[in-house]
Design a binder for these strands. Structure first.
Lengths: 192, 192
DNA sequence: TCGCTGACAAAGTTTGAAATCTGTCAGTCC
DNA sequence: GGACTGACAGATTTCAAACTTTGTCAGCGA
């Protein structure tokens, strides 16, 4: 908390703690500065606005989920696609339950349709494009344009990754619904 | 407005006008009663609560869209499915633009996850089940369970009928995204 | 008798003044 | 000289009191 100089990383770590504790509605820049033992003016030396700080914290938080997804093993594309979509759903669900205040912060950004969220989505669709292209190379998927199909797959599974639907993710039967949509998509991509 | 007796239908018609004029946030039961030239106590003689009145108005309003969908012509199931989904998207879009206050009322009900909305969704999924069963009979679709597939089709097209996404329905490129999802789903159902 | 009224309590909303927060910047201190 | 402070203006949020709305019900009038 009190080193020689205040770094961007220190601020981000503390801001994350403060957001986790108070949530996006109650956490203030003054709270973050107080937790760091500095004046709030110092925080503004590193981030141009509260919104920028909130975005940086969310970006950091989103990067954790990316790590798990990139680690989905290679193999037959249909299996990989299913595993990837399941991992995405599982990761979002876990965050919604385990870290509700940071999840709420993320929801605020979604509501503001921030550039960070757009980049996050572009990254995820990019990973899907990679998996689908792989499937086309393997001869198990067929599509005119893997990027368009990837976006369609992402759109079609909205209900299972868009944070707005988080309250429904504990409904009984949600896993069956997820399975049914994944099965439909899988058949829609298959070359058979 | 001033007949011998106050009827449920009169109240519904007037409530619809009042909601259209003021929107769900500003319209009150007293406003509706005033427009009818009666005391608000009389309205409570026909509807147990403001929420019930709001639900009845929304139900009436939703039934209009049902009419257009049931009228989608029979024919080859893939064409019919595409036409039905396009009609649903077009109808929701039109209502969001032409009737924003009643659309906002509908959004309130979605937020309250009301029984009326559940029934509306069940009806729509029922129509989809009918189309898919038809396709199976025609030999053009293949599925283990038409009802499960119908629900999957409904879930996969969420982005194009869930009112929460209404702000995105005027994005450029939304029609391409819609086409890509419908194409994916169509191939996913096809027997070929 | 039966539909309606209007006074009422409880719940929810508005309002505006006080308090807090965001973002800036001249000035301090190391 | 560069990182930090703290006083400040304007924007936003909070709080409590005044007001509005919801939902009930005893009683009126046709």
């Amino acid at each position: 908390m009190t080193d020689g100089v205040l770094t961007r990383e220190q601020i981000l770590t503390t801001a994350q703690e403060v957001l986790r504790r108070y949530g996006p509605a109650k956490a203030t820049v003054v709270d973050v500065a107080r937790a760091l033992g500095v004046s709030h003016g110092s925080v503004y030396r590193h981030f141009p606005s509260k919104a920028a700080l909130r975005e940086a914290v969310t970006q950091l938080w989103l990067e954790e989920s990316h790590a798990a997804l990139a680690a989905v093993p290679a193999g037959p594309a249909p299996d990989r696609l299913r595993a990837w979509l399941s991992a995405l759903f599982a990761a979002k669900r876990k965050k919604a339950f385990d870290d509700p205040e940071l999840f709420a912060t993320y929801l605020v950004l979604v509501g503001e349709s921030s550039a960070v969220i757009d980049a996050h989505i572009a990254d995820l669709v990019g990973q899907l494009t990679e998996i689908i292209s792989d499937g086309v190379r393997q001869g198990v998927f067929r599509t005119d344009d893997p990027a368009v199909s990837a976006r369609a797959v992402f759109d079609a599974t909205n209900r299972f990754h868009d944070p707005q639907y988080a309250p429904e993710w504990s409904d009984p039967g949600i896993d069956q619904h997820f399975e049914a949509v994944v099965a439909l998509i899988s058949r829609g991509l298959s070359a058979g």
